[in-house]
Design a protein around this nucleic acid. Structure first.
Lengths: 109, 109
DNA sequence: TGCGTACATGTCAGAACTGACATATACTTC
DNA sequence: GAAGTATATGTCAGTTCTGACATGTACGCA
């Protein structure tokens, strides 16, 4: 939405946060969540593939076992940054990264 | 490194934080940074492609112009989460996402 | 020159995230 | 069934990130 258009809408009595906007936001939010879940799964798989326990992975990345557990559980308190750090810390390289991202296609429409 | 091995090393007088560990950490950190830069670039391109100003994008995602500027400048205070949110908020969908991720291959070895 | 628009940079109070710890459950193995 | 290992869950103080604001720069245009 152009700023000018937004201004016109607001002048016409619209408030920010219409149903349309809400739905759009949720859609984008959903995309982010799906992406996170994809990566979270990749972390667990990569960790196991490399024969690491949660505790070992935590040591590698100077975090804690409980936080790794939360990462893998898809806990909402976990940032995308931490997920990616965990993924790389499992030993996953560019190859694995590419493979995971290719799963992006399978994300629900 | 297995926990058992770590324990042996520690018993032998090693401290956590050897040069080797440091280098490995930087390598993983570098991978994350590169990924961020890739995405940051994608945000700017997608934003322009969709004809949005920083201010307009900020409104869409309920952020502020200055934060969008920081995102695009690769400011270290910006999280991967925010970068991805911005990317999706530009209107980028799964197609664009896939295309960006495919650039992952071009990341320096 | 003055004005409008787009973008950049610094700051900061409040919100969100983090590591660490405690504790719980579930398996194995002895 | 005690002990060890792996994972899960709740909590919280300290750190990091965020939106908002102020302000600056650069460009085009009347």
């Amino acid at each position: 939405m152009k700023a000018t258009k937004l201004k016109r809408l607001q002048a016409a009595g619209w408030k920010a946060g219409t149903a349309r906007e809400f739905l759009k936001l949720s859609e984008e939010e959903a995309m982010l969540v799906e992406l996170k879940l994809l990566l979270v799964d990749a972390v667990r798989r990569s960790r196991r593939k490399h024969g690491l326990s949660q505790t070992e992975l935590a040591q590698r990345m100077k975090s804690s076992q409980s936080r790794i557990a939360k990462i893998e559980a898809g806990d909402p308190s976990v940032s995308l940054d931490l997920i990616m750090r965990a993924f790389f810390a499992t030993g996953a390289g560019r190859q694995e990264l590419k493979r995971v991202f290719s799963e992006t296609e399978k994300m629900a429409a």
